[in-house]
Write a protein that binds this DNA or RNA. Structure first.
Lengths: 343, 343
DNA sequence: TTGTAGGCGTTATCAT
DNA sequence: ATGATAACGCCTACAA
């Protein structure tokens, strides 16, 4: 059983006090060059590793960012590819700044007392900040968290708190652009399948759709908006119904790529082919979008960028910079591929 | 600025010593019921939250599992859907046992001294165990990590260490089953697109393919095995070449769903339709598999199960149970959908 | 049953 | 430039 080599051990072996060792290691100016040199060498020889717990206990900084990430009912944890890519961006960004990510998994961390609570879990680990991904913004525990003293950033959810920021894509503009693209191709009967309508992206994309329809002088038809949940299956069913309409749409804007894929699938099952018989545009530009058949025309969210922006926000706030916008919106980009064509 | 309520505060307010408070909170037997009651109530009133750092400093247990997860060259972090699902399984499983996950992001945690090193990062945070996902098993730092004192579990990679276990799917059997399925359908010219051949799953699936070809009395043809990298694009190119062969295959076993999707795409581009002109079977059963067009016939890996098995292994080893197999193999299951048919 | 005190590994504040 | 020494918040013998 190797004993952990501590700062005391270094002090003993190098014949100085622990205080000096600490200063040497942390690059303080007031330590004689040769002393520092000696200590540094010894540290690397012994492969000394500082204990984060001890350090954070005294500095009150853990250099850890907590991540709360779950997805809705019936869609077990961590399932939507979109979130993962965002997480990747976050990871990269905060990593560069010396932070690690704590993915909260347990509701009673450490087998500890009492039930869970977001705030409690975050405090328990003394995280310096929190990223909220795919949570329900109306959850009272989430609200308590963002009202607390810990800097938070919410991705794709509307949330307010003294120390929290929100980052999301410009969903409304993107949706409108989707419709305009379809219209430009010559489509006039354009339907939409929405995301979960109790989520900010869900309503924003629907709003964008409506605005564009109106702005283009198209008739708004109730039967052309179907409610989905961001996942494939819901869109498949919705598309079935859409296609069964007396006057079916010639194009569908699905508020997520997963749903666009579901729509394509439903079309195929109905004997229709995309884009020949039906155009479909998605939203997200998930990794698979270019690879499915046909390749998806979609609105690209800058997923890494969202994660990075979230990381930025946290790092800045943790550093004590309060001058930050409450909401940060990232542009989306239309990517035209094979799932859309003239009617 | 709210002051953190500590155990001392609880002691002061409840008129007992910190020792008693600690014992009460941790459910020791030797504390008078009414005393405990009083303390517990006070704790919950004040919303007391223990500090993980302080506790782990003294107990030498952090209740945190470190996760190292990256993917190969040119495929930025966290990209392969397979890994995410595994992570989900791991998260669930260890969460139930009171562990959280630390997703290592920084190479110089805490802005600390010296360069990174897996082992160092793990020690720095005093994680109780480590999960290794999508790493290069030949990396010398990875090897150092698994030779260390920290319990490790490697997913989908071959690795040996005194305190490490490996979990993976039965890739060989699965690949063989894919070939047999195709053969049963009547196919005789069956090609394969491999995964990265320097990875254990990559070679195992290739081996399974070879075994089955042989066992079925089919001729093994060199030109029928193409090397891919588990991602879509590589399979698309491979398929192009396969289809350009003087005697092209009538079926392809792609060693990953992403590659199967790439293959389907290439077929479409060549004017062929799946499964009418070409059968394709994948591996993984990613979330999208049932939703793409056509729905993928594939070998389902129990991704949540892999994550859970990994969690199990870690939790048990952390608890000090050494009686464990070094390698744990999970069965895969053939899922027949729409991408395969008789030739 | 409860209090006291030492220690976990660091950093930080004083002196010196 | 360096050494003591006191925190940080908690657990756990050992005493009482």
């Amino acid at each position: 059983m190797e004993e952990r080599v501590t700062i005391r051990e270094l002090a003993r072996r190098s014949g100085v006090s622990v205080g000096t060792v600490s200063r040497a290691l942390n690059g303080y100016a007031d330590v004689r060059p040769e002393t520092r040199e000696r200590i540094m060498r010894l540290a690397s020889e012994l492969d000394y590793t500082p204990a984060a717990a001890a350090r954070s206990l005294v500095t009150q900084r853990s250099h850890v960012i907590g991540v709360f990430m779950e997805t809705g009912e019936g869609h077990p944890d961590l399932q939507h590819p979109f979130f993962h890519e965002v997480l990747g961006g976050l990871k990269q960004r905060v990593g560069r700044e010396g932070f690690d990510l704590l993915l909260f998994a347990s509701e009673r961390p450490g087998g500890g007392y009492g039930p869970h609570s977001y705030l409690k879990r975050a405090r328990h680990h003394s995280v310096d900040g929190c990223a909220l991904i795919g949570l329900d913004p109306d959850d009272s525990e989430v609200r308590r968290l963002v009202r607390g003293e810990i800097p938070c950033v919410a991705i794709d959810m509307q949330l307010e708190g003294p120390n929290t920021e929100v980052v999301m894509s410009d969903n409304e503009a993107g949706a409108a652009e989707a419709v305009r693209h379809l219209h430009g191709l010559g489509h006039r009967r354009i339907a939409t399948i929405t995301g979960m309508i109790d989520s900010r992206p869900g309503v924003d994309r629907l709003r964008g759709y409506r605005n564009a329809i109106q702005e283009l002088g198209l008739a708004y038809r109730d039967e052309y908006v179907r409610y989905g949940d961001f996942y494939a299956e819901s869109a498949r069913e919705a598309t079935e119904k859409l296609l069964a309409l007396p006057e079916p749409p010639t194009a569908i804007f699905a508020a997520a790529d997963l749903m666009a894929i579901g729509a394509v699938r439903a079309a195929a099952e109905a004997g229709l082919s995309v884009p020949a018989d039906l155009s479909v545009v998605g939203f997200d530009d998930i990794q698979l979008a270019p690879h499915v058949n046909p390749p998806l025309t979609t609105l690209r969210q800058d997923k890494l960028g969202l994660g990075a922006a979230a990381g930025d926000a946290l790092v800045a706030r943790i550093a004590g910079d309060p001058e930050r916008p409450q909401l940060r919106t990232l542009p989306v980009e239309l990517v035209v591929r094979g799932s859309t064509a003239a009617p």
